[in-house]
Structure formats: C-alpha cells, structure tokens
Simulated scan of single mutants.
Amino acid sequence: MGLGGCILLMAAGAILAFATDWHMPGVNVHLVGVILMLVGLIGVAAFSGIARRRRVVVPPPTTVVEDERHHRHHHGGDGYSDGYGV
C-alpha cells in the first residue's frame, strides 16, 4: 500500500469516527473509524521510514585528470600503434 492508500484509510476512518451517526447492530462504527485512522497512521510512518532509507545520495562530481602517457602513440613496430599497447 502506498502513501495515497494510507491517507485514504485515514480519511475514511475520520469520516466514520467523526462525521457519521450510523448505528449498526453489532458494529461500533466510531471504533472502526478510529482503527482505520490508526492503521493509516502506521502505514504513513512505515512508508516514510522506507522512503527515507531508499534515498540515493549522489556524491559530488570529481575532477578527472588525464595522464599524458595514455594519449601518446607508441610508434614501435610491434602492432600497437594506436596507443592501446603502451
């Protein structure tokens, strides 16, 4: 369940707990609303904890210093004249 589902549970629970006057035999609608709000709150806390751990910290860019000896061509007769055999 995502963050939206948790918020939806909290909203439905608040409606049942505070904005209704239904009386169903064997069911305490206000208690069901409070339970839904608590489950939604626990879900939001769990979701935010997981999302906090998943954040990727990108290190600052580093400066690349190229070494000149890798760019010089070796002109020997050994077949590595393109610089890969240095």
Rank of each mutant, 00 (worst) to 15 (best):
T62Y: 00
A11G: 05
H73E: 01
L3C: 13
H23Q: 12
V34S: 06
A12Y: 02
G26W: 02
L8T: 09
G40P: 00
P61Q: 11
M37D: 06
D67L: 09
G13M: 00
L16F: 06
T20H: 06
S48D: 07
R52Y: 15
P60F: 09
D21M: 02
H73G: 04
D21C: 03
D82G: 08
V57Y: 10
R54D: 08
G76H: 10
V32I: 06
G77V: 14
V86M: 07
H73P: 03
V58W: 05
I42P: 00
G49V: 15
I7H: 04
H70A: 00
G85W: 05
I35F: 03
G76Q: 08
L36K: 01
V44R: 00
F47M: 02
P25Q: 12
V29E: 09
M37S: 08
H70I: 01
I7A: 14
A17V: 14
A17T: 15
V27I: 13
V29R: 07
D21Q: 05
H30F: 04
D21T: 05
V39Q: 04
L16R: 03
D78I: 06
G13Q: 02
I7F: 10
G79N: 03
L9W: 01
I50V: 15
L9F: 03
L8S: 11
R54F: 05
D67G: 06
P60N: 13
P61H: 09
G40R: 01
R53M: 09
I15T: 10
M24C: 11
V57E: 09
V86N: 12
I50C: 12
F18Y: 12
G77Q: 14
G49C: 14
P60L: 12
I35N: 00
A46V: 11
A19F: 07
V32P: 01
T63E: 15
H71Y: 09
L36T: 01
D67S: 09
R72N: 01
P61A: 13
H30D: 03
V34D: 06
P61Y: 04
F47I: 03
E68F: 01
A14T: 11
L36Y: 00
R53G: 06
F18L: 10
P59L: 09
R53D: 05
R52E: 15
T63D: 15
P25G: 12
A19D: 04
T62S: 00
R69I: 00
G40M: 03
T63S: 15
L38K: 08
M24Y: 14
M37V: 10
V56M: 14
G4E: 09
I15F: 10
R53H: 07
G49S: 15
V39I: 13
T62W: 00
V86W: 11
A45G: 10
A46D: 08
G77R: 10
R53S: 10
C6E: 07
I7C: 13
G49R: 14
N28A: 01
Y80E: 00
G43D: 02
V44H: 03
V32M: 00
I42C: 15
H73N: 03
A19S: 05
A51D: 11
V32E: 02
R54Y: 05
H75L: 06
D78Q: 07
G2F: 03
H75N: 03
E66R: 05
H73T: 04
G40E: 01
I7Y: 06
I7E: 13
G83W: 02
G76Y: 04
L31W: 04
G4N: 11
A11F: 05
V65N: 04
